[in-house]
Amino acid sequence: MATFDKVLNRRNTKSAKWDLVKKLYGSDDVIPMWVADMDFPVPSAVTEALSERVSHQVYGYTLTDSNVDEAILHWVQSRHQWNIKKDWLLYSPGVITTLHIAVQAFTDHGDSLLIQTPVYPPFYDLVNLHDRTLLTNPLELKDGKYEINFEHLETQFKKGVKAFILSNPHNPVGRVWTKEELTRIAELCIQYDVLILSDEIHADLIHRPNTHIPIASLGEEVAHRTVTCMSPTKTFNMAGLRISFAVISDKEKKLLLKKHFKKQGLGILNTMGILALEAAYQHGKPWLEELLDVLETNIYLVKEAFSSRKEITLIEPEGTYLLWLDCRAMGLDQKELKQFMQEEAKVGLNDGVTFGDEGEGFMRINVACPTETLQIGLKRIVDALDKKL
Score class of each variant (00 low, 15 high):
4 F>R: 03
5 D>I: 01
5 D>N: 15
5 D>A: 05
14 K>W: 08
15 S>F: 00
18 W>T: 04
21 V>H: 08
21 V>D: 06
21 V>F: 00
27 S>C: 08
29 D>S: 14
30 V>L: 09
33 M>E: 10
38 M>H: 14
41 P>N: 13
43 P>Y: 02
49 A>T: 07
50 L>R: 09
51 S>D: 15
51 S>N: 15
51 S>C: 07
53 R>D: 15
62 T>Q: 15
64 T>Q: 08
71 A>G: 13
72 I>G: 01
82 W>Q: 06
84 I>K: 04
85 K>N: 07
91 Y>D: 04
99 L>E: 04
100 H>G: 03
102 A>R: 04
106 F>S: 04
110 G>S: 06
119 V>K: 06
123 F>G: 03
130 H>V: 02
137 N>V: 02
138 P>Q: 07
143 D>T: 08
145 K>Y: 05
146 Y>K: 07
150 F>K: 12
155 T>E: 15
156 Q>C: 04
158 K>R: 13
163 A>C: 12
166 L>S: 09
167 S>K: 12
169 P>H: 05
169 P>R: 05
171 N>P: 00
178 T>W: 02
180 E>C: 03
181 E>K: 06
183 T>C: 06
195 L>Y: 09
196 I>A: 11
197 L>M: 12
199 D>S: 11
200 E>F: 03
201 I>A: 12
202 H>K: 01
209 P>H: 02
215 I>F: 04
219 G>H: 03
220 E>S: 14
223 A>S: 14
229 C>M: 14
230 M>I: 11
235 T>F: 07
236 F>T: 03
236 F>R: 04
239 A>V: 13
248 I>Q: 01
248 I>F: 06
248 I>R: 04
252 E>G: 00
252 E>P: 06
252 E>T: 10
257 L>P: 00
258 K>N: 09
260 H>S: 05
262 K>G: 07
265 G>P: 10
265 G>I: 06
269 L>C: 05
270 N>F: 02
273 G>P: 10
273 G>E: 06
275 L>N: 11
283 H>N: 14
284 G>S: 05
289 E>D: 14
291 L>M: 12
295 L>I: 14
301 L>F: 01
306 F>D: 04
308 S>P: 01
312 I>H: 02
313 T>M: 02
325 L>Q: 06
326 D>P: 03
326 D>G: 10
333 D>N: 15
336 E>G: 07
337 L>P: 10
339 Q>H: 14
345 A>M: 02
345 A>L: 05
346 K>Y: 00
350 N>I: 05
352 G>D: 09
355 F>N: 08
361 G>T: 11
370 P>R: 07
374 L>F: 00
377 G>C: 03
377 G>T: 00
380 R>W: 00
380 R>I: 04
383 D>E: 15
384 A>G: 14
384 A>K: 03
384 A>H: 01
385 L>A: 04
385 L>W: 00
386 D>G: 04
389 L>H: 13
